[in-house]
Amino acid sequence: MSIIVTGGDGYIGWPTGLRIARRTDERVVLVDNFGRREWVQSVGSKSAAPISDMDDRLDGARTVHDVRNLSFVEGDLTDRAFVERLLTTHEPSVIVHTAAQPSAPYSQINGERANYTQHNNLQATRNLVWGLHEQDMTDTHFIETTTTGVYGAPDFPIPEGGAVMEHEGRRDSVPFPAMAGSWYHLTKCHDAANLRLAHKQFGLPISDVRTAITYGTETEETRADDRLNTRFDFDYYFGVVAHRFCAQAVAGYPLTVYGKGEQRKPFVSLEDAVEGLAQLALTDHTERPDEHVVYNQTTRPISIVEIANTIADVAGEFDLDVDVTHVENPREEDEEHAMEIDNDRYMELIGEQRQDFESGVRDILGTLTEHRKTIVSHEDRFLPDVLE
């Protein structure tokens, strides 16, 4: 038996696999096709923190953390034959599925990228759940990181999972409606529906972990050695807003807030995201639910202007003089949307928040100032049009 972590070369997948391996004697198998490295290169960018090849990463895990139960398999999850071999060879008790093309802007570039994103993400998930069914492994706990983006931005508190629908005086619980804003986010809406169906038809225990915007450069494990770095993207396509703002600060540009910037988005630190996935993966078989459970993987909503102001404040610790400016918003959005999102189930899982936003920003700026040459040489990849 083993624990499989897909997307094991990725931003969340690599530190998740490393944490799980440190806490268990079971074999932990990382799976990846190195697609993220290729996608980022194709848009003219790279990881700010240099990332080692997988052999060096595994050697670092053995040397620094004495982790000897971590291994790697290269393969494409859209290939049904590969997935069948993976499952029959390793017989997983748990699959943590973090593999996906994760960028909304990348999926919006053109029809080819939209088609690729939809095929890659949906085919991989379907192959895994169908593979478990066809190989009679329906006791395997399937954990997937979908996204809080499936909820859109409704004007009511977002429940942790379902919703209540009322019509002609009758009420019932229903899956939350798909309110995606990109071709990428729609893949996760479809995945959420497919996971619900896989539980209903196959009896698979499912944890649908709806991951918020994730910030940070380090976890407890990765900060111990440069070979254990996880990737850190700062470009327009793969870098989240907090990471792009930090890159602007390090490159000497003002932080540009579109409009009022008071709209709030759900956030979670990399440390807190990894902890939740590790806790789920290591839940004892006799204690985990045999149900379909949704977790809102977020610690709190943060407004865009709060992000910018926090980065500007912390930047002073790194001798960076950073201004925050407001520019005309080119997007059609509610600049004062006060998002509310339930996260009781997720907070109960991790116990307490392990890293707050200010601490995460401090880590990010520490990493980016160390690799400032990389940031400056790629500034055309993250600067908004108003500064170009």
Score class of each variant (00 low, 15 high):
residue 237 Y to P: 01
residue 124 A to I: 03
residue 65 H to K: 04
residue 343 N to R: 07
residue 173 S to G: 04
residue 38 E to H: 12
residue 167 H to C: 10
residue 52 S to F: 08
residue 42 S to W: 15
residue 381 R to V: 00
residue 86 L to Y: 12
residue 292 H to L: 13
residue 185 H to T: 05
residue 231 R to M: 06
residue 212 A to F: 15
residue 197 L to H: 06
residue 84 E to S: 15
residue 55 D to R: 12
residue 224 A to Y: 09
residue 77 L to P: 03
residue 321 D to K: 03
residue 205 P to C: 05
residue 5 V to W: 01
residue 2 S to E: 09
residue 219 T to P: 13
residue 234 F to M: 12
residue 259 G to T: 05
residue 246 C to T: 07
residue 223 R to M: 11
residue 208 D to E: 11
residue 36 R to C: 09
residue 181 G to S: 14
residue 139 D to Q: 07
residue 213 I to K: 12
residue 386 V to W: 11
residue 104 A to Y: 06
residue 242 A to V: 15
residue 385 D to F: 12
residue 270 L to C: 03
residue 160 E to C: 00
residue 230 T to R: 08
residue 59 D to S: 10
residue 187 T to E: 11
residue 99 A to R: 01
residue 195 L to K: 02
residue 171 R to I: 14
residue 168 E to P: 02
residue 80 R to I: 06
residue 9 D to H: 14
residue 287 E to C: 06
residue 119 H to T: 14
residue 355 Q to N: 11
residue 21 A to Q: 05
residue 14 W to F: 15
residue 113 R to W: 00
residue 127 N to M: 01
residue 208 D to N: 13
residue 9 D to Y: 13
residue 196 R to K: 15
residue 145 T to V: 03
residue 206 I to D: 09
residue 203 G to E: 10
residue 268 V to R: 01
residue 94 V to M: 05
residue 183 W to C: 07
residue 42 S to F: 15
residue 184 Y to Q: 15
residue 103 S to R: 10
residue 53 D to P: 11
residue 132 L to D: 01
residue 388 E to S: 04
residue 4 I to A: 02
residue 247 A to V: 09
residue 102 P to W: 01
residue 127 N to Q: 06
residue 326 H to G: 00
residue 160 E to G: 00
residue 158 I to D: 07
residue 323 D to E: 13
residue 230 T to V: 10
residue 303 S to E: 10
residue 84 E to I: 09
residue 134 E to L: 02
residue 375 I to Y: 04
residue 184 Y to W: 10
residue 54 M to Y: 07
residue 3 I to T: 05
residue 371 H to F: 06
residue 158 I to C: 05
residue 141 H to T: 05
residue 133 H to Y: 09
residue 119 H to N: 11
residue 42 S to I: 15
residue 317 E to L: 06
residue 36 R to A: 14
residue 142 F to E: 04
residue 129 V to M: 01
residue 378 H to W: 09
residue 336 E to G: 00
residue 57 R to H: 08
residue 33 N to W: 07
residue 57 R to Y: 04
residue 328 E to H: 07
residue 270 L to T: 03
residue 54 M to W: 07
residue 184 Y to M: 08
residue 301 P to V: 00
